[in-house]
Design a protein around this nucleic acid. Structure first.
Length: 116
DNA sequence: TGTGTGACGGGCG
DNA sequence: TCGCCCGCCACAC
């Protein structure tokens, strides 16, 4: 086995994202950019979004709590059912109207601030 | 090895 | 105000 082992945790950028997402309190949401900024790559919000795509395999990652800066459930399409993501948020007390989180500013949870 | 992709964000017309 | 374009960076093929 040499260096070919360690197929488990890769300490990749993804896991960092997952850890942050897991820390999102129930009933709160954050944005891709906020996570990216917390990770140090403010302009790499796309990476976070893409990481969420892989997070699909991770059942411990509440990806539904991550939305874009507008508070819009842009990633709902990746949850299979169009209403699944919204349903999950509503189950946590987050008001969602037409894929748009209500009182987004109030529900917003910034890791770079809360985890500071 | 290099190119393309991507659940975004900010800026400009 | 709305819409379009460009930029960022890691990962897969």
């Amino acid at each position: 086995m040499k260096t070919s082992d360690a197929p488990q945790q890769k300490r990749s950028f993804f896991e960092d994202v997952y850890q942050v997402v897991k820390l999102i309190p129930k009933g709160k949401v954050t944005s891709y950019g906020a996570i990216a900024q917390y990770l140090g790559s403010k302009g790499s919000a796309r990476m976070v979004g893409w990481a969420m795509n892989q997070a699909h395999a991770m059942h411990n990652v509440p990806a539904h709590r991550v939305v874009n800066r507008q508070g819009l459930l842009t990633g709902k399409q990746h949850f299979g059912e169009s209403d699944r993501m919204q349903r999950l948020l509503e189950a946590e007390g987050v008001e969602v109207q037409d894929s748009q989180i209500q009182n987004f500013a109030q529900r917003f949870w910034d890791p770079s601030v809360e985890l500071a």
